[in-house]
């Protein structure tokens, strides 16, 4: 007797995406690829003035027009993807790694450690994120490592809070009690029992935090405290070309569209994650 062959495809396991999620994922992957291969596909050097015409229109030579100095916007948007996507990704990974590790430890140990850390990070949450970023960057000076660390610090408390709440729930479940009774150590409980069971929601949370970080980074750059000229991320590109707004210049529209496309597609992707991943408790 032969068993019917069933290949465990994502759809059969309940992990398939609907069309909105797929579009979101496609746009995210598109920007990631652009960020990775950016320097090799720019039609012009991003810092070169290639046109006498400032705020030039869209044409066959310059696909997205030119900026206030006559530099090619397409090349600058492609390079901007590196800064925006790269800095935001590094910061969100740091923030979530720190938050999840601390959150799991606090959630599993409880007691005064949990109490102290939770109160402290709650208090920290009260400081507006963009303002904290501004203050640190204004005080220390802006460089890419400073930006990454600042953004990571801003979003660590939120990630901690989220991971802790999940870990506390998982911690009371029977299989964790069983593992304790079996005599498993602290490391085993955190890594093998708790972590796999909070991974799905944590990844969804990571996506949302990525959006927030992109927005704060763009805000910092818009105020002139983010990535420093002559380099520019997307927020910086909007700042540089803001005078072109009343002329309806493509130089200010395309970077804005780039930011919006990235953040909206991440939101679409997260909102349409299969429930199996998003919420394991159901």
């Amino acid at each position: 007797m032969s068993l019917p062959l069933r290949i465990p495809t994502p759809a059969r396991l309940g992990y398939s995406f609907n069309w909105a999620g797929r579009i979101g994922l496609a746009v995210i992957l598109f920007w990631v690829v652009i960020a990775l291969i950016g320097p090799w596909i720019t039609p012009y050097a991003p810092g070169d003035m290639v046109d006498w015409n400032y705020f030039g229109p869209v044409n066959g030579q310059f696909w997205m027009g030119t900026d206030y100095l006559g530099r090619d916007i397409l090349s600058r948007v492609i390079m901007g993807a590196r800064y925006t996507v790269g800095i935001a990704a590094a910061a969100v990974v740091l923030a979530c790694a720190g938050g999840v590790i601390l959150g799991m430890i606090a959630g599993v140990t409880g007691g005064w450690f949990d109490m102290l850390l939770s109160r402290l990070l709650d208090a920290f949450n009260g400081i507006p994120s963009l303002l904290f970023g501004l203050v640190v960057v204004a005080a220390v000076g802006s460089s890419i490592p400073v930006l990454i660390l600042t953004l990571a610090v801003i979003y660590l408390p939120g990630s901690y809070r989220f991971a802790r709440a999940l870990a506390v729930n998982v911690n009371t479940m029977d299989f964790v009690t069983v593992a304790r009774a079996r005599g498993e150590g602290f490391g085993h409980i955190i890594l093998r029992e708790v972590f796999p069971n909070i991974l799905g929601p944590v990844l969804a949370d990571l996506g949302l935090r990525f959006v927030f970080i992109v927005l704060v980074l763009s805000g910092l750059s818009f105020l002139g405290l983010g990535v420093q000229p002559p380099n520019a991320d997307w927020g910086g590109l909007v700042r540089e070309n803001i005078e072109g707004l009343s002329l309806g210049a493509p130089a200010v529209i395309f970077p804005s569209v780039a930011i919006a496309s990235l953040t909206i597609s991440v939101n679409m992707f997260i909102d349409n994650l299969p429930t199996r991943i998003r919420d394991r408790s159901e």
Partner: peptide, 22 residues
């Protein structure tokens, strides 16, 4: 709402300037 929370605040502000003032 998802569009508004997805775009940076300065875009909402500049868009408002563009529409109502310009």
């Amino acid at each position: 709402t998802i569009s508004v929370i997805s775009v940076p605040e300065f875009m909402v502000a500049t868009l408002a300037v563009l529409i109502f003032a310009v």
